[in-house]
Amino acid sequence: MTSKITKKNYSMRSAFGKTLTRLASAHPNIYVVDIDLKDSLKLTDFAKRFKSRFIETGVSEQNAAAVAAGLALSGKTVFLTSYAAFSPSLNWGVIRQSICYNQAKVIIVGSHAGLMTDEQGATHQSLEDIALMRALPDIDVFSPADARQVKKILPTLIRGPRPAYLRLVRASAPNFTDPKSSFTIGKAQVLKRGTDLTIVGHGPILKNALLVQKDLKNISLEIINSPSIQPLDEKTILTSVKKTRHLITLEDHQVEGGLGEAIAPLLLKNPLNAKMKLLAVQDEFGQSAHDYEKLWDHYGLGIESLKTAIKELLK
């Protein structure tokens, strides 16, 4: 049951914009509160077709988050769309009070997360969004692995009762999740079964784990996609680590507050005599580059770094 990596690249942002526009026909309560990034979030069509439900706040992340809360408290299903580097960060305190504490069902969509932002550099590379959102009560946190998964997540978020954060990336990347799998809040998916070492990750970078397996013929990797970071699928992860006793977490995010740090306490609570390594950005800012693979390599998240980490952990 190994997932196949497509040769073609697909845009998460297009998948988001198109799927939301399609769903909006059947769901008259869907609203978008946009922070002047509609083209970037691929919502131009939504804005044209559902003019009355497309609310443009201009570059005002705090006002936008609270306006979204006001709409949600009036029964609307609201998507608050921007770059992750601005929302949720400039407006974190507003998300905390007006959305989470007040139980306003707003879905915060943060695009351009991680290092995959092309020339834009550190100001636009959100490497802290998951940490910011994980720290809050009463919100779910999702980081889909590919465009295919983005399409499946949206109907679930619309149905769900709680606020949510949805992480998207800028660059197009291959699809590699199972086309037949469904998306369930709190569930991880095993992309490949194995016995020696577990890799758990989220986002497009998880593709590297599948590629590494092809180079390491003598090592059997179990690869788990964990798009639901809060709530976390503890059972699937622990069952795997119990078997392999070796765990690497892989994510395009700061090590602080990311998926790795969400999983590490599970190993303290459930002593499995397992070794663990967290592959993530190590407390530094990103930078510009036109090839995200090069950025991943530079920050120790690329294929070679992953191979080294696997070999070291299994020594």
């Binding site: 306006v67 609307k76 507003v94 009070q97």
Partner: peptide, 18 residues
């Protein structure tokens, strides 16, 4: 619910818009 200042007018605006 409020306490952190400056947010309520935006929330009220969102409600009035709805």
């Amino acid at each position: 619910s409020s306490g952190s200042l400056g947010q309520g007018l935006s929330v009220a605006a969102g409600m009035a818009l709805a």
